[in-house]
Amino acid sequence: MHYREYRPDMALAPYVECLWAARAPASHTHRVLPDNCVDILWQDGGQPGFAVGMMSGAILVASEHPVRTLAVRFKPGMAGIFLATPLHALTDQRADIDLLWGRSAADRLADALWTSDAPERSRLAVIERELLRRLQAGAQVRAGHAALVQQALRALEGSGGELRIEVLAARLGVSRQHVAAQFREHVGLSPKLYARICRFRRAAMALKDAAAPDWAQLALDCGYFDQSHLIHDFQEFAGSAPERFHFSNRPQP
């Protein structure tokens, strides 16, 4: 399977993690893990583009026929600026982009992506131009977009998911309930679940290059109370025990 990521335009860099492209062969299945990001995907074959919300567990994606995918992955807490919908409505769901952006805009973008023989990066530039247009149109919304949530996200990411939510709320000078409500709208997950996925991703990356890991030490290094908590999170988020785990990227062809 071909998969490649590209850096976004500088004006989009505060909001977009990357643009990516993939080509999946026929009869292909892969497991996609939760990564605390929201993507919008466009695929050839006449399907409408669709947004994939925050994931609370792994999913299996299968393709019966060869599929090409072009996509954008947003940084945590930033997709709402472009989708104009509370992100909890998309959690563990997908929504056709024509329902979010309107049929006319969705069809125009799909035609621009798939009716030419332009190189992969040039097609992704079409997506960037649409995002830039929407970013400029939403300048007023962008200016006041969930500053508290961005502070909370930086704190959780900086701690590798180890920061306790009550400590986070105290630092921000608000209640746990307020933090949770803001996360629900602007992130799509509770802050506690977001932190758990941070820890899981940290452990998954550590396993990527570990030939014979010390499981107890890995659990401690990644912020788990003990090895049993590490095992529980792998079963919940990857559908696999840690010793049988194989790291996977997010593409969803």
Rank of each mutant, 00 (worst) to 15 (best):
Arg199Ile: 12
Ala238Thr: 01
Asp111Arg: 15
Val67Cys: 03
His28Ala: 15
Ala22Arg: 01
Pro191Asp: 12
Leu99Gln: 14
Ile59Asp: 04
Met54Thr: 09
Ile97Tyr: 10
Glu185Pro: 06
Phe183Ser: 11
Ser159Val: 13
Phe50Pro: 12
His145Ser: 02
Val141Leu: 15
Ala11Phe: 08
His28Cys: 15
Met205Arg: 09
Leu60Met: 13
Tyr194Ser: 05
Tyr224His: 04
Val126Glu: 07
Ile127Ser: 14
Leu156Ser: 13
Val16Gly: 12
Gly161Leu: 02
Ser27Ile: 05
Val126Ile: 14
Phe74Asp: 14
His246Gln: 14
Gly173Cys: 04
Arg121Asn: 05
Gln217Cys: 09
Gly161Ala: 02
Ala21Arg: 06
Arg129Phe: 11
Val38Ile: 14
Val174Asp: 02
Arg31Glu: 04
Leu124Trp: 07
Val126Phe: 03
Ala11Arg: 15
Tyr224Ser: 06
Pro48Phe: 05
Arg201Asn: 15
Gln43Cys: 06
His229Met: 12
Tyr224Trp: 06
Ala79Lys: 05
Ser159Arg: 10
Arg68Met: 08
Gly223Cys: 04
Arg31Tyr: 04
Arg103Lys: 11
Ser190Pro: 11
Leu220Val: 13
Thr85Asn: 03
Pro251Gln: 05
Leu220Asp: 13
Arg171Phe: 07
Val38Thr: 15
Ala195Glu: 05
Leu109Met: 14
Ala211Tyr: 03
Ser248Asp: 04
Ala58Asp: 07
Ala62Gly: 09
Arg184Val: 09
Val167Thr: 15
Ala147Trp: 08
Arg23Met: 12
Ile40Val: 15
Glu128Ala: 15
Leu33Arg: 00
Val179Tyr: 00
Asp209Ala: 15
Ala89Lys: 14
Pro34His: 03
Gly158Ile: 01
Glu243Met: 04
Arg184Leu: 12
Met54Asn: 08
Asp44Ser: 15
Leu19Gln: 11
Trp42Met: 01
Ala112Val: 07
Arg244Gly: 12
Gln227Ile: 11
Arg196Lys: 12
Arg7Trp: 00
Asp96His: 06
Ala146Lys: 08
Arg154Phe: 00
Val52Gly: 00
Gly57Asn: 13
Gly160Pro: 01
Val32Gly: 00
Asn36Met: 09
Ser63Lys: 12
Ser190Val: 11
Ala110Ile: 05
Arg244Ile: 10
Arg184Pro: 11
Ala89Met: 14
Arg94Gly: 03
Val32Ile: 08
Ser175Phe: 13
Glu130Trp: 11
Ala203Arg: 02
Ile197Leu: 04
Gln93Phe: 00
Phe82Leu: 08
Arg68Thr: 13
Ala210Cys: 07
Glu185Ala: 10
Glu243His: 08
Leu131Gly: 07
Leu168Val: 06
Pro14Thr: 02
Ala152Thr: 02
Asp226Met: 01
Ala216Ser: 14
Val32Trp: 01
Ala13Ile: 04
Glu130Tyr: 10
Gln140Val: 05
Leu207Tyr: 09
Arg164Cys: 07
Val32Lys: 01
Val149Lys: 08
Arg196Phe: 04
Tyr3Val: 03
Met205Asn: 09
Pro8Ala: 13
Ala195Gln: 05
Arg176Asp: 06
Leu172Tyr: 07
Ser175Glu: 12
Asp92Tyr: 02
Asp233Leu: 00
Ala24Thr: 10
Gln150Val: 10
Ala71Thr: 05
Leu12Ala: 02
Gly223Phe: 00
Arg199Tyr: 12
Arg142Ala: 15
Trp114Cys: 10
Val167Gln: 15
Asp111Asn: 13
Asp9Val: 03
Trp114Asn: 07
Glu162Tyr: 05
His229Asn: 13
Pro8Gly: 12
